[in-house]
Design a protein around this nucleic acid. Structure first.
Lengths: 160, 160
DNA sequence: AAAGATTGAATAGTCAATCTTA
DNA sequence: TAAGATTGACTATTCAATCTTT
C-alpha cells in the first residue's frame, strides 16, 4: 500500500509544509529566546509576557481571565503565575469593586522597572533570532496571513 | 517616561508583530488540532508525530536521538514517550547492531495501522484550521521564510 | 444556575546525574 | 573520556472539582 515515499503525500502540500515550518520555528526560536531573556535579566519569559500585558492595559491592571486570554494561557496557569509574581513584588492583586467575583491583577513600580530592564533584551532577541533573517515584506506577509488565521478562530490578533 | 502608548514602540515593528502573530497562531491552532485528532482517533498528537517520523524513516526505525530531533523534543521526553508507545504495541525498541550504545525505535504493524487511521484526520485538520484561510502564495512565503530562520539556527527544515 | 477564580490531581516536559558501551 | 540512553527530581501546564458571588 504505502511505502517510504508516502512522505511526498504531505511534505509537498503547501499548507502542511507551512504548518510544519511554523511548529519547528516556534520551538526553536522560543527556546533560544527564553534562555537568553531569562539568562540576561532573570525574568522568565512568561513573567515578561504578564508584565507586558498588564503595563499595556487600561489602568495597568486586568482581570485574571482577560490576562489569561492575552498571554494565551489557562486561567489556572495565570492564577499560579500571579501568585509567584505577587510574592516577588512585581504584581498586586485587588478585588474588583464592580464585581466581587472578579480579581484584578496590576503591575507595581517594581514590575515596571523589571519590564523596562527586560524589554530591550527581549526585543533585540526577536530581532537577532527571528526578524533579522527576513525582509520586511516577508514579515508583513507572515503577520497578515497569521492574523487572518487567528481571526477565523475568533481570536483578535492584538487584544485591546 | 513611558505611558500606555508605548505599545506602539513594538506593535508597529514588523518583526515583533510577525513573531507575536506566530506565537498566537501556534497555540490557537495547535490546541484545536490536538483536541480534534485525539478526540477522533484516540491518538495524542505527540504519538502521531512519533509514528509519522518512524514510518517515514529509512527502514522505518530511528535512533532515539534522531527521533528526538525530528519531533523537536528532548531525548528524555522521547524516551518516556517511546516507553508508553511500546506498552501500547505501536513501537518496538531494539539494540543497534553497529553500536551497542544506541537504541533503535521502530514502528509496528499496529503502529502503522494507527497512523493510517489518524493521518487523514490530522491532514484535514491542518487544512480546515490553518491552510484553508490562506493562499498558496501566502503559504509558500511562510514556509520559505521560516525555513530561512530555521537554517540560521542550524535546523534543517525537513530532517532527512 | 452561571460566572470568576482558585486548589488538587494528573500530564507534559526539562535538566542534572547515572549507567553502559566506544 | 565521549556518546547514547535512561532515571530521578523538578518545573510547567492543564483538567476537573470546589468555593464565592451574581
Amino acid at each position: 500500500m504505502e511505502n517510504g515515499e508516502n512522505r511526498s503525500d504531505w511534505r509537498d502540500d503547501p499548507g502542511v509544509a507551512a504548518w510544519a515550518a511554523l511548529l519547528r520555528t516556534h520551538v526553536t526560536v522560543l527556546r533560544t529566546l527564553a534562555r537568553e531573556v531569562e539568562g540576561q535579566t532573570g525574568l522568565p519569559l512568561s513573567w515578561y509576557d504578564v508584565l507586558l500585558e498588564l503595563n499595556a492595559a487600561e489602568g495597568r491592571e486586568l482581570r485574571m481571565q482577560h490576562l489569561a486570554e492575552r498571554v494565551v494561557l489557562s486561567r489556572t496557569r495565570v492564577s499560579r503565575l500571579v501568585d509567584e509574581m505577587v510574592a516577588a513584588g512585581l504584581v498586586v492583586r485587588r478585588a474588583d469593586i464592580a464585581d466581587a467575583r472578579a480579581v484584578l491583577a496590576g503591575i507595581t513600580q517594581a514590575g515596571r522597572a523589571a519590564l523596562r530592564h527586560a524589554a530591550p533584551v527581549y526585543l533585540q532577541g526577536i530581532q537577532e533570532h527571528f526578524a533579522r533573517h527576513l525582509s520586511v515584506h516577508q514579515l508583513t506577509t507572515i503577520r497578515q496571513s497569521l492574523d487572518t488565521v487567528l481571526a477565523a478562530h475568533g481570536v483578535s490578533p492584538h487584544p485591546s
